[in-house]
Write a protein that binds this DNA or RNA. Structure first.
Lengths: 182, 182
DNA sequence: AAAGTAACTTGCATTATAATAGTTACTTGG
DNA sequence: CCAAGTAACTATTATAATGCAAGTTACTTT
């Protein structure tokens, strides 16, 4: 069956995933952000089959994250360089990096983010650019924007949507009378 | 063919993707972070087929991002609540949100992140917790950590790895003599 | 002239995803 | 007390996505 498309949902996360949500895509972007540009560099770094790599690179080019450009006329040779859109993906990579290190590195960290000058390890947090407050917990929530459709507004209005971390989900039915037992 | 596993790579991003990199998983986490907990809530919100949802929820439980717990004995009913590991995924969601809004909302933003008190729109940036400097450009780079294997060290040592944004990829071959033309 | 390199494409097997329908175990309304 | 409803799934069957291996093109190097 054809994979269901996220592209027509209004959610920006869904729209983004439509472009980078396939297997390999994010790892390719990781390598591109680390400076790789050539087909065989990606191939070696990832251990990916060439047909898959070709397909993913074409997809990322089509989505506007990479630009395919010829760096040699004869023989024809191409490289893949990040566009602004691709470079803007960096915060996602950094956030993934931090999360992965925190939760899936039981033997200790293998790849660190460090300050380029001092060499000291960095500890990435997301903050609001203006208030400088960390974007966590209950301080921030999602709200319908100017382009939100009616359906989107209803959805945002419904549940306890406050980027609710662990809302108390006590259900009446569970606690209620359990008469006909035995 | 069995999908190639990222779980044994040392990269924290790859390890994370092993857990959340499949179609739907990140959208499920988005909804969970917004307070959804029940099977049918996810089903409606996402428009996902129930078999897919069941598989993904089971996967996220197994990966330790969600906890499946009974909230009603008779009839047996279950809800899915985020674990700490799942809640820690929030920065990735927020970063994706910002990126998606910036690049894939040509009609204007539909879902905004706002300050819960003031209602003002937030502008998420990743900074280093200590230095407060934005983790972008050339200020930060990746480095091998204490648990890095030899292979990982070599890989990190090779390319221009500085989270290089747009390194000048001038190739000698392209510029070099093109003798036997015509 | 043979081997190497870069960037792919083709063919075919195996998995994953999806829509739909069915199942279990109750609760509720009339 | 019986039909309809609700919550949380499983089973079936189709189409697409993924993967490995091998082949191709067009040169460059030894």
């Amino acid at each position: 069956m054809q994979r269901k498309s996220f592209g027509k949902m209004q959610c920006p996360i869904a729209r983004g995933l439509e472009r980078v949500g396939e297997w390999w895509s994010i790892l390719i972007l990781r390598d591109a952000l680390h400076g790789l540009t050539r087909f065989d560099q990606f191939e070696q770094s990832l251990g990916i089959a060439p047909n898959m790599l070709a397909r993913r690179l074409a997809g990322l080019v089509k989505a506007g994250l990479l630009e395919r450009r010829r760096y040699s006329e004869r023989p024809p040779r191409y490289e893949y360089v990040l566009t602004e859109r691709g470079r803007d993906f960096q915060p996602v990579i950094v956030a993934m990096h931090a999360w992965g290190n925190r939760h899936f590195a039981p033997e200790g960290q293998s790849v660190l983010l460090v300050n380029a000058r001092t060499g000291e390890p960095a500890d990435p947090v997301i903050v609001d650019r203006n208030s400088k407050h960390p974007l966590a917990d209950t301080e921030f929530r999602v709200a319908p924007g100017p382009a939100a459709a009616e359906r989107t507004r209803r959805k945002l209005a419904s549940s306890a949507w406050g980027i609710a971390l662990h809302p108390p989900t006590i259900d009446k039915r569970g606690a209620r009378k359990r008469r006909n037992r035995a």
